[in-house]
Amino acid sequence: MNLAMSSDCRERFLADLHVGVLGVTDPRGTSAPLLVPVWYGYEPGGVVTVLTDRTSTKADLIKRARRFSLCAQSEVPPYRYVSVEGPVVAVEDGLDRAEWEAIAHRYLDRDTAVAYLDANRHQLEEYLTFRMRPQRWRTADFTAFARQFS
């Protein structure tokens, strides 16, 4: 059974609301790759956008590696996931206010987003924006597989 998603399905899935898990190589010794949950932005056909503190380990490792991967998954059956990997095509100093606000509203209800944005204005200057062009996709949709057991 082929579990792979079509190009259209995988792009829509990645654009849906998921907390992503970002992975980046960690060359600092014998460590495994750094894996951290992140909020992200994506529109079909576009780039994956991640905002992070410029002094974070994540930012340092992404700048060194010039690429990262991101996995998004559904956490309820039937399980599905999309994993993308690719080069960083832009590192922007600071945050675009409209994009920052859109990501906060994507992940938080209205009132919580407003409070979050008000309390974290420092992020506009202290954060970096990373943009990654998806180059390699890995996907699985277990919907048809799960139907066999219902």
Score class of each variant (00 low, 15 high):
M1D: 11
N2K: 07
L3N: 11
C9T: 13
L14F: 05
V21N: 04
L22Y: 04
V24N: 03
T30K: 07
S31P: 00
A32C: 05
Y40Q: 07
G46M: 01
V50S: 03
T52D: 06
D53M: 09
R54S: 14
S56W: 06
A59G: 09
D60K: 13
I62S: 10
I62R: 13
I62E: 14
K63N: 07
K63M: 09
K63Y: 01
R64T: 07
R64L: 02
R64V: 00
R64M: 00
R66A: 15
R67S: 15
F68G: 04
C71P: 00
A72V: 15
Q73W: 09
S74G: 13
R80W: 02
Y81H: 13
Y81W: 12
V82H: 07
V84H: 06
E85Y: 06
G86W: 12
P87N: 08
A90T: 12
A90G: 06
V91Y: 05
V91L: 10
E92H: 04
E92R: 12
E92F: 00
D93G: 04
D96N: 13
D96C: 09
W100A: 12
E101M: 02
I103N: 03
H105A: 09
D109Y: 09
D109M: 04
L117N: 08
L117F: 05
L117H: 08
R121Y: 02
R121N: 01
H122G: 03
Q123L: 07
E126D: 14
Y127S: 12
Y127R: 12
T129H: 01
F130I: 04
R133L: 14
Q135T: 15
R136Q: 11
R136H: 06
W137H: 13
W137S: 11
W137L: 13
A140V: 07
A140N: 13
D141R: 01
T143A: 01
T143V: 00
F145M: 09
A146L: 04
Q148A: 15
Q148I: 12
F149D: 02
S150R: 09
